[in-house]
């Protein structure tokens, strides 16, 4: 691994990052993986949201950013598909963007067909809930997730999904009691995940040239 500034010190239990470090690392890694800067901003939001919820933010974002690029969804009433597996990031963003449009989940449930790493959809479904000001329900395999505006998610089932799954997004009733966000937030990441995200982030950086070094600072020394 190349030595970079800002690298946290590893400890036996992995690395603990602040939310702003999670945001910054995800922002750069997402751009490094070939997404647009505006999308990287959304991915950073998603990572922070997942880590606040105590979910595997690093594994999820890394999964979404690595491997073959999945497809942008084609939103239609009731079913969102594409010629192959759906990109979870772009599906999540589109769900939030279409929140109040007919193709979105406000009128009838939407089934997103074959989504890889579906956890990433949760933070965006939370945005839908905030935008519509009503609870949302997500389900795939044996997972049931309930999202209420401003509250931490309630998740039941096994969230790990190795293969793309069909995710249903629908409005829900408000009866269930929801957990509160924890008072303090940090995010865990293991060494290998940190290394891989950093490698992606480094694709956004430019090697320092003598010229850029010279221009960046003061002309003289500091012994005055």
């Amino acid at each position: 691994m190349r030595k970079i500034a800002h690298a946290p010190v590893a400890c036996p239990d992995g690395i603990v990052l602040s939310l702003s470090e999670i945001s910054s690392l995800t922002y750069r890694a997402t751009r490094g993986a070939g997404y647009e800067w505006g999308e990287a901003e959304e991915a950073a939001y998603a990572s922070v949201w997942l880590s606040r919820a105590g979910l595997d933010w690093a594994g999820t974002i890394l999964g979404a950013l690595s491997g073959a690029r999945a497809h942008t969804p084609l939103p239609a009433r009731g079913v969102w598909t594409a010629p192959g597996p759906l990109c979870p990031l772009r599906t999540g963003m589109a769900l939030a963007d279409f929140a109040r449009l007919p193709e979105g989940p406000s009128a009838e449930p939407v089934v997103c067909v074959a989504v890889a790493h579906p956890l990433i959809i949760l933070p965006f479904a939370a945005r839908v809930a905030a935008s519509l000001d009503r609870p949302m329900r997500l389900s795939w395999a044996d997972v049931e997730a309930c999202l209420k505006p401003g509250q931490a998610p309630l998740i039941e089932g096994s969230v790990a999904a190795d293969e793309p799954v069909d995710v249903t997004v629908a409005c829900a009733d408000a009866r269930r009691a929801m957990p509160m966000w924890p008072r303090f937030h940090r995010g865990d990441i293991c060494d290998a995940q940190y290394r891989d995200l950093t490698a992606l982030a480094l694709r956004t950086t430019v090697p320092t040239s003598a010229r850029s070094q010279a221009g960046a600072g003061a002309a003289g020394g500091d012994n005055d």
Partner: peptide
């Protein structure tokens, strides 16, 4: 504007 590789600091090219 870019970020330098060695210090992850913003620079202007």
């Amino acid at each position: 504007w870019y970020v330098s590789e060695d210090k992850l600091e913003p620079r202007l090219g």
